[in-house]
Amino acid sequence: MMTESFKNLAKSTSLLNIYLCEATTYPAVLAALNLASFPRQIIHVLVNPKDYQISSHNHFLNPLAESPHLISHLEFQATLHKDPWDIEPDMRRVDVAHNEFGRHYSGYKSVTPQVSKLAAKLSSVKEVSFRGCDTVPRLRLCHGCEDAWVGIFAKNTYSNLTHLDLCGGYVSGSRLRGFLKRHSGTLQHVMFDFVSLTDGNWCSIAKGLQKCPNLNYLDVGPDTTTGRYIGSLLQRHASSPLAISLPKKYVTPGLEASKLQSDDSHIDVILRNTKDVAHWLDVFVRYFATDKSIAGDCYEAFNGYKLPVYHEAPLDKYLEADEEA
């Protein structure tokens, strides 16, 4: 029945993607698509390391490796770290360095050789997403996130890549810059949301994005001036400002106001065309600076655990500048 359904949908313009979020669905859906000789990449596949801790790799990963012509979007998902208020008081200190559910912490690696080989085999995907372990930087370096970048993203080239989406994780700035450089000719859509650089800085990343001629969508998350307690772009080391002060009368188009709750809101910095992206990146690079982040202060208050110091690129500084910028 599934095969016949896919045959009927082969020419449908409404069917944009099929999201496979459970490993148990991989074999049946991919088998049906192949039997239907489905003509285009349609699968958005979620790879979560915890799914393979209790199950055979081959049963779930082989169907993916055998069907690269059907997979358009590769998403790697770490199990999110719980917020401190969701953890029992006597478990808060233990939870900082606990990962029985695949949570990232020092010394933890999740990418097996089979998963790494799969990522290399899926080199024709158009979209890549990395969902890290947390929005708050609780570690100086997360070995789990580092392992994901080394094993899946840093060493691979995705020849048709148009979309890159990084959210809530630790990433090496130098490796991310190298990834952007390799894919500069194809990238069109980039999103960074609560990403912590363990080396390098966001100015260097912005310079890499400036070399992507087709980039027409850039989302760098919320600014920190209207109710947010954490910046979206964080880095391990402070950066000195490249200019004394910002010009005064420039307003970046394409920003979205999002309602958090009845008495609070924030601004998402989202640029939606090539001109706006280029202009915002130019201002960001020329007047780049960082502030010490207050991310995680609430976590320290809960369990007394000392979080590492990170520095954030305060996006609000790039929302207003001079017409001559």
Rank of each mutant, 00 (worst) to 15 (best):
P241F: 05
H183M: 07
L234E: 03
A206M: 02
N216G: 10
L176I: 04
S204H: 07
G200M: 02
L197Y: 04
T186L: 00
V171P: 02
V269A: 06
R228E: 14
W202N: 03
D219W: 07
N273C: 01
N216S: 14
V269G: 05
I267T: 12
S239V: 15
T224C: 08
E256K: 15
G231Q: 05
D268Q: 15
A206Q: 01
L215E: 01
G178S: 11
R177L: 14
K211T: 12
T252Y: 01
L271D: 06
L176A: 05
K248F: 03
S265Q: 11
G178H: 08
L271G: 03
R182Y: 05
I230S: 12
P241V: 08
D199W: 04
V251A: 14
S239N: 10
I267A: 01
K181H: 09
N273D: 13
P213V: 06
L218C: 03
G254V: 01
D193E: 13
D264E: 14
L215M: 01
Q235R: 05
F179I: 02
V220Q: 06
Y229E: 08
H189G: 07
P247F: 03
Q210G: 12
L197M: 00
K207F: 03
G178W: 01
R272G: 03
H237N: 15
H237C: 13
V220P: 02
S204V: 11
P241M: 06
F179T: 07
Y250P: 13
T186C: 09
K207S: 11
K181N: 10
A243H: 09
K211C: 04
R272E: 10
Q188M: 09
I230R: 09
R177Y: 10
T224G: 08
L180D: 00
L197W: 02
H183E: 00
I267L: 08
A206D: 04
H183P: 05
I230L: 04
P222I: 03
L246N: 15
R236C: 08
V251G: 11
P222E: 02
G231K: 01
T226M: 00
I230K: 06
L215T: 06
H183K: 09
D263W: 07
A257M: 11
S258Y: 09
K249V: 13
G173S: 04
F194R: 13
Q261A: 11
S239K: 08
R228C: 12
H266G: 08
D276V: 05
V269S: 03
G185C: 13
V171M: 04
S240A: 15
N201T: 05
Q210Y: 02
R228A: 14
T225V: 09
